[in-house]
Computed example of a mutant assay.
Amino acid sequence: MSDIFNQVDNSIYSNAMTFLRVPLVMDPIAAEADIAVLGLPFDIATSGRSGARMGPTAIRQASINLAWEGKHFPWKFNLLKKSKVIDAGDLVYSTGDAAEFTQKVEKAATQLLASGKTLVSLGGDHFVTLPLLRAHHQKFGEMALIHFDAHTDTYDNGSAYDHGTMFYHAPNEGLIDPQKSVQIGIRTVFNEANHGFNVIDAPQANDMSVEQISTLIKEKVQGMPVYVTFDIDCLDPAFAPGTGTPVCGGLSTDKILKILRTLTDINIVGMDVVEVAPAYDNSEITALAAATIALELMHLWTVQNKQV
């Protein structure tokens, strides 16, 4: 190959096709890897503004801003030298077929997990978490959920494919234990009388210290396999305008990153970042926040599973 084409690309504006420029692997089941990034371009279940189907591409493009560091601040190790990360591309499904999408997500995730990989999934609207939880449950059993969001998503009045009903269905299916789960950043109405989940609402979270929030999370999920799901609208719209259902009064990017960095001693088995809708973004700040959060989650997993 000519030397002019055989070069390492360290720019932030060219060839931004995969997360952190890691290899795109079209047969991720057979590939050797610790972490697989899976894009889920789906927003049929959206109740507000559509557009989250474009989220995976936007997050990947924004991640190139993070690829040049080597050691990502403030972590003291190079993630890609400790964990082998691949990009599995986007799940392909028949346009408009929510049932087929749901089945394919569960099947793809089940196969990736069975091959020994840990999944970091990029949405897509938040409905994608339900089939992901079904796949993870097959391997890990009942899990605790750490759920960052403006909404509880525990509503029982939606259709079978609704991004506000996943955490109504998941406990009923035995996928997660709500009493061992924590929802952070909630600032919309829910039925507190029979909710079941532990909630740190946004006003509380904004007034509490990072250490207080971290301690409560760890106390609740202790001893359980943990799935972390991050709806980008947990962040205040000042930090994440590019989402379908923005709600004022959320958390700052700084506080979220500080909370995540304290969770190094829990058993994280699966992760997703969802609800980035780039059509409503400004200067890619929402996509960059999502890419940074996904990268932080990878660092957490690496600390727990590798010698660093």
Rank of each mutant, 00 (worst) to 15 (best):
W75R: 08
K76M: 02
K76G: 00
K76D: 13
F77H: 00
L80I: 00
K81H: 10
K82N: 11
S83H: 01
S83P: 07
K84L: 12
K84G: 05
V85C: 02
V85L: 09
A88H: 12
A88E: 10
A88S: 14
L91A: 12
L91Y: 14
Y93D: 07
Y93I: 06
S94M: 05
T95D: 13
G96N: 02
G96H: 03
G96E: 06
A98N: 10
A99I: 10
A99D: 11
A99E: 12
E100C: 02
E100M: 02
F101I: 00
F101P: 02
T102F: 07
T102P: 07
Q103W: 05
Q103M: 13
Q103V: 14
K104Q: 11
K104F: 08
V105Y: 03
K107E: 15
T110K: 15
T110S: 15
Q111L: 15
Q111T: 13
L112H: 11
L112T: 10
L112P: 14
L113Q: 03
A114E: 15
A114P: 09
S115F: 07
G116A: 11
V120C: 14
L122Y: 13
L122P: 06
L122M: 12
G123K: 09
G123L: 11
D125K: 09
H126K: 13
F127K: 11
F127I: 00
F127Y: 14
F127G: 02
T129F: 07
L130E: 10
P131V: 09
P131G: 14
P131M: 09
L133Y: 09
L133A: 06
R134M: 10
A135S: 15
H136V: 04
H137M: 12
K139R: 15
K139M: 12
K139N: 12
F140R: 10
M143L: 15
M143T: 13
M143P: 13
A144K: 05
L145A: 11
A150H: 13
A150W: 07
H151L: 15
T152F: 04
T154M: 01
Y155P: 01
D156G: 08
N157V: 15
G158P: 12
G158Q: 11
S159P: 08
Y161C: 05
H163F: 10
G164S: 08
G164T: 08
T165A: 14
M166C: 04
M166D: 03
F167V: 04
H169A: 06
A170R: 09
A170K: 13
P171V: 05
N172L: 05
N172S: 04
E173A: 15
L175S: 05
L175R: 06
D177T: 10
D177P: 11
P178I: 00
P178S: 03
K180F: 01
S181C: 08
S181R: 06
S181N: 04
V182K: 01
V182T: 03
Q183T: 04
Q183E: 12
I186M: 03
I186P: 00
R187K: 09
R187C: 10
T188M: 05
V189L: 06
N191A: 07
E192R: 15
E192W: 10
A193G: 01
A193I: 04
H195K: 01
F197S: 01
F197T: 00
N198Q: 11
V199E: 01
A202K: 06
A202V: 05
A202S: 10
P203K: 11
Q204C: 02
A205Y: 03
A205D: 02
N206G: 11
N206L: 09
D207Q: 14
D207S: 13
M208V: 09
